[in-house]
């Protein structure tokens, strides 16, 4: 385990200052710790500065109003998934949060942590991109807002500087006739890392014709990928089998997975199409149920 120095600031200002003042050693922010503590345990050395964000109130709450959702990045997934109001509006996001690890992991892990860890297989990232979420980032020079699809820049990499902190996750209210869904594939029923994932948001008009869609695939490229071609396959259709099949094919074609212990290239390419089709059907059904 790496030797650490631990700080738990009470405000974002304090937290940013701790990070920007820390020039003699690596500094990491701690949210749920479900990735960070595992990483620190697998290494030796240090010291590293660990800045715990969970004592900062605005990191820990979620506000849903007429502007949409403003989510404190460090709120644990268990708290988020218990929020019926959020689940009603963004079912895909909440189901992605629910899929992260066990009950115990959800008691600590957060959407912000999942984002900032920036794993290609992160479950909430495709779900967030599907609902056009943005990241509000704070640093020594002020705040900036970045769409989630631009936030993650590579495997384990994102656009934040070492003294910046993800302050809020901002999600617009979905348009009328819109619903989202997220599916992932794992070998077991729980506890695994996604072999492939698909986040889908669809908008249907009163005749059931798809007027807009966002389709995002995960775990099949260095970052989650927005696949416009898959969305285009659905737009204008009544979500019939051919349209769904075309969307699936577009998702498979857009993927560029690797062979690893969790799946082969061919398998992931195939399954991401299956998930895209299935998630699109679920999202469309959710619109119809509304």
């Amino acid at each position: 385990m790496v030797v650490i120095e631990y700080e738990a600031p009470q405000s974002l200002g304090e937290a940013v200052k701790l990070l920007s003042d820390c020039t003699d050693k690596p500094a990491r922010v701690l949210a749920g710790g479900t990735d960070l503590i595992v990483q620190l345990r697998s290494q030796v050395g240090g010291p590293q500065l660990i800045v715990d964000l969970k004592k900062i109130p605005e990191m820990m709450d979620a506000v849903l109003d007429e502007n949409g959702l403003s989510l404190g990045p460090s709120m644990c997934c268990a708290e988020l998934t218990a929020r019926q109001d959020i689940k009603t509006v963004y079912p895909g996001l909440v189901e992605a949060a629910y899929l992260i690890g066990s009950t115990q992991i959800q008691g600590r892990a957060s959407v912000g942590g999942n984002l900032c860890n920036s794993s290609p297989a992160a479950d909430t990232i495709p779900a967030l991109i599907a609902i056009a979420a943005e990241c509000l980032i704070i640093g020594p020079d002020g705040e900036r807002q970045v769409p989630v699809e631009d936030f993650v820049t590579g495997v384990g990499e994102n656009c934040m500087a070492s003294d910046e902190i993800l302050k809020r996750i901002i999600v617009p209210l979905p348009a009328a006739g819109t619903a989202d869904a997220y599916l992932r594939f794992i070998p077991r029923t729980e506890m695994d890392i996604a072999v492939a994932g698909a986040g889908v948001s669809v908008t249907l008009d009163n005749n059931g014709i798809c007027t807009a869609a966002r389709i995002v695939i995960g775990a099949v490229a260095p970052t989650a990928l927005l696949v416009p071609a898959a969305a285009e396959a659905l737009v204008g259709s009544d979500m019939n089998d051919t349209a769904l099949q075309n969307a699936a094919a577009a998702a498979s074609a857009a993927s560029s997975p690797i062979d690893d212990l969790r799946g082969t290239i061919e398998y992931r390419q195939h399954v991401v199409g299956v998930l895209t089709r299935r998630a699109a059907v679920i999202a469309a059904d959710r619109v119809k149920e509304k």
């Binding site: 631990y6 738990a8 503590i37 660990i50 715990d52 969970k54 268990a78 009950t103 008691g107």
Partner: peptide, 15 residues
Amino acid sequence: VNGRLVCSCLVFGVE
């Protein structure tokens, strides 16, 4: 921790 189920191996003692 405060009634919420967690793995104590993924919590720092100082927390």
